[in-house]
Amino acid sequence: MDRAGLQAANQALHAFIEFAPADDAGTALSGPLAGLSLGVKGNIAVAGLANTGGSAARRHAVASQDAPVVARLRQAGAQILGTLNMHEGALGATTDNKAYGRCLNPWGQNLSPGGSSGGSGAAIAAGLVDAALGTDTMGSIRLPAAYCGVYGWKPAGRLIPQTGVIPLSPTLDQVGPLAKDPATLWAVAKAMGGPMPSASLSGLCFAIARDRPAPSGELAFLFDQACGRLRGAGAEVMELDLDLGLTDAQLLRACLYVCEVEGAREWAGELADPDSGLDPHFRAMLDYGRQLSSERIDQAYGILADVKEKLRARLAEHGLAGIISPTVSHVAFDHDIGPPPDQAFATQYANVADLPAISAPMGLVDGLPVGFHAMTAPGRDDLALALAALFPPLTRPS
């Protein structure tokens, strides 16, 4: 797509915050990513472009240099087309951004692409880019991947450098790619510093958590088919109780406390200035974190540490390669209705336990994409990436 076509398509979607000058995007260099176009979430530094974290409060900030992960992609030959829309400060999962426009999911009228990396998912689904960078705190790569029918990988540990990224929660954040197909995902992941996908799933065991809500209806049918694909690749699928001692909602609340507390530290300057330009809802969440009692903060961090220890222990005890589920229990939601309360119930665990995770499109429910989700054992990012190959790309109706 030429520059004029890109800009015209974006007017309807609001997937981009800012386009790189044509000379900067340029002709791709030689390298493994030559010929691929990429966008970068608006909280990751791209030299010469506004570095806002999706907030009008930082509208005058310009990145002086690429974040290391962006520099790696350029060196591998990728064209960086610009920065992508996001939920303000990465604290939310709709990408209904008051400063840069309501980002729309190209799969349907007024549908949210999810968030906080919503512009990344929308831009790929619309064919504006081949791949994109996102950040993931409680599912912010994998939720847009599921809603937009694309692929998203959340790395673990410090495999991918976080330098040059405006953080929400250093405790939970990761940088990772979304892509149009498995081969593109693997190429971008490799250029970022990730592993090659595992060559085989044979002999591995994946678990379905019996004590988490089970999918129903058409989603259950598609998930059963996905489990069949795993078995067809030589893997075993079993059921077990995770027995983590709390509900999904309780863990979500603890994660939000941590995000609000750590986010308030990152945005302290803007929070102190009543005229900084922070959206009132974002400001209120940060202010809540700023005023949270030390007792509740300690309790939240304690919950996260306990879940991490128990979840990793379950994987080790049963020799599991990973835990699988649908990415979300529903399809993309209308912006004017808002997200279901269980939106991040499945995805949050991989951030809390610092495990690799993947979302891949496993089919359509009512004509809209749904995702297959796996969080894999510690150090097995290669397995997470390999699982993408089980699911062919979806074709969006024109």
Rank of each mutant, 00 (worst) to 15 (best):
G203D: 14
T171D: 01
P167I: 04
C205P: 09
P177L: 13
W186R: 10
P167H: 09
M196F: 02
V175A: 01
P195S: 12
P161N: 03
W153H: 03
A189H: 04
I166C: 10
C205Q: 10
V165M: 09
A209C: 07
P197N: 08
I160E: 04
A207M: 06
K154E: 04
P170T: 00
V150H: 05
R158W: 03
G176S: 05
P170F: 00
S202H: 02
P161Y: 10
I160P: 09
Q174I: 00
R158K: 05
D181V: 13
G164D: 12
K154G: 15
W186A: 13
M196Y: 14
G176W: 11
I166Q: 05
S198R: 11
P195L: 11
A156M: 06
A179D: 00
G194A: 07
I208N: 07
L172P: 15
Q174V: 08
A207E: 14
M196W: 02
A179L: 07
D173F: 14
P170D: 08
A183S: 12
L168Q: 12
I166G: 06
W186G: 11
S198C: 10
S198N: 13
A189R: 05
A179I: 01
Q174C: 13
K180C: 05
S198G: 03
P155L: 13
S169R: 09
G152A: 03
M192A: 13
D181N: 12
T163I: 08
G203H: 01
R210P: 12
R158I: 08
S200T: 11
T184Q: 00
Q174A: 09
T184A: 00
P161K: 11
V188L: 09
L185W: 10
F206A: 02
G194I: 04
I166S: 09
P170C: 00
P182S: 14
Q162G: 05
V165I: 07
L201A: 02
K154L: 14
C205D: 15
A187M: 09
A156P: 04
Q174G: 11
I160F: 07
